[in-house]
Nucleic acid binder design. Structure first.
Length: 898
RNA sequence: GGGCGCUUAGCUCAGCGGGAGAGCACUGCCUUCACACGGCAGGGGCCACUGGUUCAAUCCCAGUAGCGCCCACCA
């Protein structure tokens, strides 16, 4: 390629497309299950098929890709297994809505036809998020892409279900569960989101049966459910009411007489009136209280599966029934309250804040609903899962999340796994119409397991989506078949996810993994931040604050976007993302691009790296190499500890502020030397070597631009002549290259240059003007060092005449700066503005005095001298000396000026 | 009600026992032959508040205030 062809700005679009398809065609993403090399494996948290890539996926996938690419470059047998989740309720809702546009109702369509429609939908749109992951540069092994409803995973689901049933860990029973009246299905406890709402507390007087003139006043937020009341509870020790226990009240609006019971658990003496209406079919506490009674309280359902008032509630007066049947719960509340008011039973209402449950999929208000459901008995599964984390077999990063996990797991309730929807894994249970037996089977049953009757029908419920996700780490690898993949890649190395699904997913994977594989599903769980918008709101479409990753990618390029995500992935923090930030990193990509342009322009096309000998390598060369190897070390340890932000900022800092700002400028002096000069060759070699190494270090975060640039670097420089950067080796630091002495020497040179630049800047000396500088050193040795760096100083500080020595003196009119071990004078005859120089010096002196104060105070403290570590005292003493010297010299210079 | 987290430069955030940092924004100068998606030089902070531990506290401990999140059956 020709240098002239390289444009001044990096164009992400063409490069991304080109390299991704090349990587795919060369099968770099493919993991070889036969390879015996140490493995590294990750399973992707499967996004919903209905999903389109949002910023959370982008962060999650970027971090996984960084780890995957890093490990692959480090020579591990690396698998990142992708796939999607069938997302039962969510997908069913999406397809239902789609059908509704054509005025088709799923019930009219029928179950089988509807499921066909969902599969069709999946075929058309399900691949969308996969395509988007590819745009992000995800290096997943696409050959192994799985779907939670595909054949293999369905087999795993059935195997797990039947086994747990046989072990008595799955059971069926009628229970009070959370019911979404909109989705028409049961939900598990964690699928209910609680929100505070301002409601009313209604005080209702229930007349005592034996003396209706006396009323027992109950307080409730849901008066409509009184139609299902089967008791009133009071505290057994409550002096106001305890004598009423065993008596009855007449339930208003009905012909029902219900008992007054004592229940110390249900009733809080302090709250409301101290008397509670008990509706066992519509409230979890009341349900439990009903079970505690001997005999159990009857459970009267007053709402149907749509959340509307039934028309067959026993005992309700016909007039009342006529008014409210078929009304949604909230409307019924108003009607009942009005009726109670009219008839004089409503004592008062007061404002009352309470939390209501909403469906996490559709946000409809969830009703407690009595119905037959399937459950997983979680206790026995949770126990080993708790232990695995306690024993460190699974490690949460950051560790704090372990508490969240423990809290939930130690109080875990049985998991309601049946859903009354159509899209999902249908429960493999068959009911016998003759003898009522339930047959649970790995294969489709054709006859009753007990009476052999062929008169059986399958359960219509499907399983909770999270049931199949819980098996993901092993079901995707072929389980229950003992595949080579399973043996090779399970347990996986790390799970990367966000905290909102620790309960839904992480905990359940650990339980299922331990139970069926006898081994944890992953060793590390890296919990990353949640992405929010610039105002800190959780992004949601309804708020209109969604940052679309694909728009960002189009606008700034995938690499800039990925770098932004990595830079903001600090542990335990929410990420607030704004486009300006991405723009900043787009500029960084461009900086890298132009630095590479510079390097490539300054080496010959057939460049052969020089064999570096120390005497050929300049101070700058040695310095940048030392810095490079330090950075390598930092980057590697940051990656190993999931400190992605440190990886990003470390590389940013090094590339921009050390390599570009300093080394590239310093290299110019050597590049101007004669073609055959060994010094020039050494610098060329250093330039290109550092660039090549940095590209490899950066590749996991910025895969595209690094590949584009790496391919332009002469083959002779690229390690092992790999054909792509993504299969080149990840850089390993060489301790012998790290040189403290060189770094210190360079530091002094840089300080000198900065001091002169400061004078130039503050004195308003035109950048184009070449000036004279005189450096008076305290010791000859330092002078010699600085003399060796003479060219650097001249070029970077724009000096035409530089004098360095221990016998130099200050010219009559000059600006002064003091650095460690030397004074710098810039003679400014004719231009010197005395007032300006005075101000500059005063500012500098003030700064120095302030520092001196701090250190003097510290060092005059006896206890500090006695008790602080020696090294600290010594360091501070030396520092104070330097500061005093500097201060004195500056003052002298100020005096001379006046 | 229980738990967790946060409060550092105008903004977004690192740092977490020994002289307060970054990016963006801001000010001045500069179209210097890698880059104006740029360069150089600057300005800007009682590190929320109050106590305590320590020779030393932005950092550790306790409390206060504000903000955020999670869990929970407050009728």
């Amino acid at each position: 390629m020709s240098d002239q062809e390289l444009p001044k700005t990096y164009d992400p679009a063409q490069s991304e497309q080109k390299w991704y398809s090349l990587w795919l065609s060369r099968r770099y993403f493919h993991a070889d299950e036969k390879s015996a090399i140490d493995h590294f494996s990750i399973v992707i948290p499967p996004p919903n098929v209905t999903g389109s890539l949002h910023i959370g996926h982008a962060l999650n996938s970027t971090l996984q890709d960084i780890l995957t690419r890093w490990m692959r470059m480090s020579g591990r047998n690396t698998l990142w297994l992708p796939g999607t989740d069938h997302a039962g309720i969510a997908t069913q809702n999406v397809v239902e809505r789609q059908l509704a546009k054509d005025h088709i109702d799923r019930h009219a369509l029928g179950r089988e036809k509807f499921i066909e429609k969902v599969w069709e939908w999946k075929k058309d749109y399900g691949g969308r998020i996969i395509a988007q992951l590819k745009r992000l540069g995800a290096s997943c092994d696409w050959d192994r892409e799985r779907f939670t409803m595909d054949e293999g995973l369905s087999r795993a689901v059935r195997e797990v279900f039947v086994t747990l049933y046989e072990e008595g860990l799955i059971y069926r029973g009628e229970r009070l569960i959370n019911w979404c009246p909109r989705c028409h299905t049961a939900l598990s406890d964690i699928e209910v989101e609680h929100e505070d709402e301002q409601g009313k507390l209604y005080h209702i007087g229930y007349p005592l049966s034996h003396d209706p003139s006396i009323r027992l006043v109950v307080a409730t937020t849901r008066p409509e459910t009184m139609l299902g009341d089967t008791a009133v509870a009071v505290h057994p020790l409550d002096p106001r009411y305890k004598d009423l226990i065993g008596k009855t009240v007449n339930l208003p609006l009905t012909s029902r007489t219900i008992p007054i019971i004592g229940d110390s658990i249900l009733v809080d003496l302090e709250f409301g009136t101290g008397a509670v209406k008990v509706t066992p079919a519509h409230d979890f506490n009341d349900y439990e209280a009903g079970l505690r009674q001997k005999p159990e309280l009857p459970r009267i359902k007053m709402l149907d599966e749509k959340g509307e008032v039934r028309n067959d509630i026993p005992d309700v007066l016909p007039d009342v029934m006529k008014l409210i049947h078929g009304k949604p719960a909230k409307k019924a509340r108003g009607i009942v309250a009005e009726l109670l008011h009219e008839q004089g039973y409503l004592i008062k209402t007061e404002e009352h804040a309470h939390s209501i449950g909403k469906c996490y999929r559709c946000k409809a208000v969830v009703e407690p609903y009595l119905s037959p459901q399937w459950f997983v008995k979680t206790g026995p599964l949770a126990k080993p899962a708790i232990k695995a984390v306690e024993d460190g077999k699974v490690r949460f990063v950051p560790k704090g999340w372990e508490n969240t996990y423990f809290d939930w797991m130690r109080n875990i309730k049985d998991w309601c796994i049946s859903r009354q929807i159509w899209w999902g894994h249908r429960i493999p249970a068959w009911y016998c119409d003759d003898c009522g037996e339930i047959t649970v089977s790995r294969t489709d049953a054709t006859a009753c397991g007990k009476c052999k009757s062929k008169n059986i029908h399958q359960e219509t419920d499907v399983l909770d989506t999270w049931f199949s996700s819980a098996l993901w780490p092993f079901s995707t690898l072929g389980w229950p078949t003992k595949t080579p993949e399973l043996a090779r890649y399970y347990p996986t190395s790390v799970l990367v996810t966000s905290f909102d699904i620790i309960f839904f997913w992480v905990a359940r994977m650990i339980m299922m993994g331990l139970h069926f594989m006898k081994e944890v599903p992953f060793k590390d769980v890296y919990i990353h931040a949640l992405v929010r918008d610039a105002e800190g709101q959780k992004m949601s479409k309804s708020k209109g604050n969604v940052i679309d990753p694909l728009v960002m990618i189009d606008q700034y390029g995938t690499d800039a976007f990925r770098f932004t995500l990595a830079a903001f992935a600090a542990q335990g923090r929410d990420i607030k993302l704004s486009p300006e930030r991405i723009e900043g990193y787009r500029n960084f990509a461009n900086k890298l691009w132009n630095a590479s342009r510079f390097v490539l322009m300054n080496i010959e096309k057939d460049f052969i790296p020089a064999k570096m000998v120390t005497q050929d390598a300049s101070l700058a060369d040695q310095w940048i190499l030392s810095r490079l190897h330090s950075i390598m070390q930092e980057v590697r340890s940051a990656l190993a500890e999931y400190r992605f932000n440190d990886v990003a900022s470390g590389l940013y800092q090094f590339i921009w502020h050390e390599y570009c700002d300093w080394y590239l400028e310093l290299s110019k002096t050597a590049l101007n030397l004669d073609r055959n000069s060994t010094a020039r060759q050494a610098t060329q070699t250093t330039l290109v070597t550092v660039l090549e190494t940095v590209l490899r270090l950066l590749h996991p975060i910025m895969p595209f631009i690094t590949e584009e640039l790496w391919q332009m670097i002469p083959e002779s420089v690229r390690t092992k002549k790999a054909e792509s950067i993504m299969v080149a080796a990840y850089p390993v630091p060489d301790q012998t290259q790290i040189n403290r002495r060189i770094e210190n020497e360079m530091q002094t040179v840089m300080e000198l240059i900065m001091a002169i630049r400061n004078i130039r800047g503050e004195m308003n000396i035109a950048p184009s003007m070449q000036i004279t500088a005189i450096v008076k050193v305290e010791q000859k040795e330092l002078g010699e060092h600085l003399q060796k760096a003479e060219d650097y100083i001249k070029t970077l500080a724009r000096i035409k005449d530089l004098r360095i020595g221990d016998r130099e003196t200050k010219p009559k009119t000059a600006a002064t700066a003091v650095i460690k071990g030397a004074e710098v004078y810039v003679p400014l005859e004719g231009i010197l503005d005395l007032a300006q120089e005075r101000d500059r010096l005063i500012k500098e002196i003030a700064k120095t005095s302030k520092d001196i104060d701090v250190f003097t105070r510290k060092l005059s403290n006896r206890d500090f001298i006695d008790k602080a570590p020696k090294a600290v005292v010594e360091k501070d003493t030396a520092k104070l000396d330097d500061l005093r010297t500097k201060h004195k010299k500056l003052e002298q210079n100020l005096e001379m000026l006046e």
